[in-house]
């Protein structure tokens, strides 16, 4: 029924960050994404990053978490160790070693459960992020 151009696609996803400057540094300099858009928008910026392997792929919006509901929501997730979202890597253990050397804090060391290996890190902007690969 739907023409191809009508298909719903994921072009953008977002994380709620406490501070956009700090988020940009962490997501580019530490995690290794590249900045795609940085446009002033009211008090904040429309700030997105992409994977260097796929610059025209899904963008990650570093969205300010200024809404009063955001902080209690994020704090509760972090306290229970629940990641806000998940990124794919080729090898979780290798990435864990690389990031830990850069001073990144992990709340879960690499763990293989079934076919999936995961680890959970702190993005310094109020979120936990899960890294994952499938074996």
């Amino acid at each position: 029924m739907a023409e191809e151009e009508d298909d719903v696609r994921i072009r953008l996803t977002s994380v709620l960050v406490d501070d956009q400057d700090r988020a940009l540094r962490f997501y580019t300099e530490i995690l290794g994404f590249e900045k795609k858009h940085d446009v002033p928008l009211g008090e904040d910026r429309w700030l997105t990053v992409v994977s260097p392997d796929d610059p025209d792929g899904v963008e990650l919006l570093l969205e300010p978490s200024g809404h009063p509901a955001a902080k209690p929501f994020k704090d509760a997730l972090v306290a229970d160790g629940i990641p806000f979202t998940q990124f794919a890597v080729d090898d979780v253990r290798k990435e864990y070693d690389r990031l830990r050397d850069l001073g990144v804090r992990f709340t879960q060391e690499p763990t293989t459960m079934g076919q999936t290996t995961t680890a959970v890190l702190d993005d310094t902007c109020g979120n936990l992020i899960q890294l994952a690969h499938q074996s």
């Binding site: 160790g81 990641p83 060391e109 763990t111 459960m113």
Partner: peptide, 17 residues
Amino acid sequence: ARDGQTLFEICGRLTTN
């Protein structure tokens, strides 16, 4: 098996393991 886990990790291990 691993001491010092978040609630999230414990739940994941119970489900997958």
